[in-house]
């Protein structure tokens, strides 16, 4: 076998394997999107309908607009429109993520340059993340109710901030470690205050790290379910909770609407993810990889 033959076979094997996984990844996504465009009789038809016929946007209208379905008499799910939940989710996830990344960067800088936390402490911080949230949510809800933080966006933001902080610190530290110290030293010799050095010298150099960390934390806060389920009630309902209302429907499965709502929850993250995909890879190495 010549080298080029070998390469050909290698490349065929590679494309075959990658394509198999691509199908496994893509099919559920396709199913979600296509179901959201199916008319109701095709949601659970047997034999299965693979391509909506005809394509319809009625599910989106039912879920996302005020087109009141009382009139048509079909499948009422929620009196509250998911836009409110969408707004809540957006506000809570963005605020918590921003706080987490900003403060995470500050700690990471402190650790990297001034060892404000020893290595052991750093690992202990990571450990905090590894405690399942279910373990603390009962006393937390009592504590929150005493503080008046139950069912408030502040309450959710605070706990999301706290639980994602370890990841922020770890991910950002690996980026800051890579910034050469000479630049800061120069700044310090010139007498620049330390905060300004951090904000104006170091952070701009780790932009891509901040972007990657931001996305990863946003994934966690956007999709969080358990804490949102137990700590929020009427005022603050996030999108995952809104979607889970479909679980108890009594008029049969409403797959088309579920899918239309699912698409709405998924699109923002996928959109952001695709824009900044190049920055992702380095963020996840937690300092285990050096270049």
């Amino acid at each position: 076998m010549t080298k080029s033959q070998k390469n050909r076979i290698g490349s065929i094997v590679r494309y075959t394997l990658l394509t198999i996984w691509a199908v496994i990844v893509a099919f559920p996504l396709y199913w979600m999107v296509s179901t959201s465009f199916k008319p109701s009789e095709q949601w659970f038809a047997w034999p299965t309908v693979y391509i909506p016929d005809p394509w319809t946007i009625v599910n989106y209208l039912d879920v996302w607009t005020d087109r009141q379905e009382v009139a048509t008499g079909q499948y009422i799910i929620s009196a509250q429109r998911p836009w409110i939940a969408f707004g809540n989710s957006l506000m809570i996830a963005l605020t918590a993520t921003t706080l987490s990344v900003v403060y995470g960067a500050v700690i990471a800088y402190g650790v990297s340059r001034y060892r404000v936390l020893s290595e052991v402490r750093m690992f202990q911080l990571l450990m905090l993340r590894m405690i399942p949230p279910i373990v603390i949510v009962a006393p937390l809800s009592l504590y929150y109710s005493a503080l008046g933080l139950l069912d408030t966006a502040t309450g959710l933001i605070l706990i999301y901030f706290l639980t994602t902080l370890p990841y922020s610190v770890w991910m950002l530290k690996s980026f800051i470690d890579e910034v050469p110290r000479e630049v800061e030293q120069a700044a310090e010799i010139l007498g620049a205050p330390r905060w300004r050095t951090l904000v104006e010298v170091v952070l701009p150099l780790v932009r891509s790290g901040i972007v990657a960390t931001f996305l990863f934390i946003l994934i966690l806060t956007w999709s969080e379910y358990l804490l949102a389920l137990l700590l929020a009630k009427t005022e603050v309902v996030t999108l995952p909770i809104e979607l889970s209302k479909y679980q108890g429907t009594t008029e049969g499965r409403v797959y088309g609407r579920q899918a239309a709502l699912s698409v709405g929850i998924t699109v923002p993250l996928v959109f952001i993810g695709l824009i900044i995909r190049k920055h992702l890879a380095r963020g996840f190495s937690f300092g285990m990889i050096r270049r």
Binding site: S78, A79, Q80, S141, L142, S145, L150, L230, K233, T234, E235, K245, Q247, G248, T249
Partner: peptide
């Protein structure tokens, strides 16, 4: 305002209200 959750889930949520 209402909290719109399924009647099967309300018992747990109401108990949680009672606790606090």
């Amino acid at each position: 305002n209402i909290q719109d959750i399924s009647i099967f889930d309300i018992p747990q949520r109401a108990m949680a209200e009672a606790l606090s």
